[in-house]
């Protein structure tokens, strides 16, 4: 039996040529995703998490983009793969869903038609059979009255239903991996929970892995197995969810988790925030990109720090483990 990971990303780099110079959106990102695993990719806007997903699917079509590194999926190298071959993988082996379900669906085709389209593009299946399968899928994602919904247009459904439909569409060919780019950001809180449930169960229902990109820590806490924290195009901390949440190692993570308002206890006068702003991706500071904002910065930080730490839980910081123990803020245990 082979235990090789489903997806192996090694040193993925995405640069954009622009008037201001080279915009380094993703800088040497490496991670693995195993089967039936949910990876949460966390970071603020501009951290490079969405670009990472797009790079995996080959959906970066700007002529000014420069990609390098390796993306191996089920042993096949995706980087540089010609369009035809890529199309055989997209939708079939790797599915993707985006942030806004309203704009993700083509307004002039019915839900059913759009799902059928995916099915018939990848499988030899007749129209009637495809339609039936589409209705099944719509049902599987928890949408009531699936047969009539299949004949509806996107604008006729509510936000939550739309996102379910989009998930149904992405999962229609049972892909091994689902890339979810901020799937709940555009939805309201109650619906968010339902969608997250759904995503969480994809593992059981479809046997797929998920890469869940979000800036919402609660989403990750809820659903993910592993967490990668990204900052300024690099992964600054990676590890199992509980470890990263309860014992964060990187000063940035400390700031992140510190900014979560407490669930109970006295109400803080102000919400704490990390001082400063993320760096411009075209003018990155030398060495550790968090250095300008880090309260614990020192000269060693002028060198790009590699990922270091105990097995399974590493961070990109030159602080030795003891110092990290010392400086990390106390975290309430998450249930």
């Amino acid at each position: 039996m082979r235990f090789e990971p489903l997806l192996e990303v090694k040193d993925l780099t995405v640069h954009f040529r622009s008037e201001e110079g080279l915009v380094e959106a993703v800088r040497g990102v490496s991670f693995n995703v195993g089967r039936n695993e949910i990876l949460g990719l966390v970071g603020e806007s501009g951290s490079g998490k969405s670009q990472t997903l797009l790079a995996i699917m080959g959906l970066i079509d700007s002529p000014n983009a420069v990609l390098s590194g390796s993306i191996r999926f089920e042993g096949q190298e995706l980087m540089g793969l010609p369009r035809r071959a890529l199309d055989r993988i997209r939708g079939k082996k790797i599915g993707m869903i985006f942030q806004d379900p309203m704009t993700s669906l083509t307004p002039v085709h019915t839900i059913g038609a759009q799902i059928v389209e995916t099915l018939r593009a990848h499988e030899q299946i007749g129209r009637k059979a495809a339609k039936d399968r589409a209705v099944e899928l719509i049902d599987a994602v928890g949408i009531p009255a699936p047969r009539s919904v299949a004949d509806r247009y996107p604008h006729q459904l509510s936000g939550g239903m739309r996102q379910r439909a989009v998930i149904a569409m992405a999962m229609s060919c049972n892909p091994a991996l689902l890339l979810a780019d901020e799937p709940t950001t555009a939805l309201d809180v109650t619906v968010q929970a339902q969608i997250l449930d759904l995503i969480g169960k994809l593992r059981e229902d479809f046997g797929s892995s998920v890469i869940l990109v979000t800036h919402d820590l609660g989403v990750v806490a809820e659903t993910a197995d592993k967490v990668n924290v990204m900052y300024a195009g690099r992964i600054v901390e990676e590890g199992p969810k509980e470890a990263v949440f309860l014992q964060p190692r990187h000063p940035y993570s400390w700031g992140l988790f510190g900014s979560i308002p407490p669930f109970d206890g006295p109400r803080p006068a102000r919400l704490s925030a990390i001082p400063g702003a993320p760096p411009k991706l075209s003018a990155l500071p030398k060495g550790c990109s968090f250095r300008p904002r880090c309260p614990h910065a020192h000269d060693a930080c002028l060198q790009e720090p590699p990922l270091a730490g105990p097995v399974g839980h590493r961070s990109a910081c030159v602080l030795p483990d003891a110092a990290i123990e010392e400086l990390a803020p106390r975290q309430e245990g998450a249930a």
Binding site: I89, G91, F98, S104, E117
Partner: peptide, 13 residues
């Protein structure tokens, strides 16, 4: 538009 990106992500050519 976004739905074009989505359509591409479906691998339909």
């Amino acid at each position: 538009e976004d739905f074009i990106r989505m359509a591409r992500a479906k691998g339909i050519g």
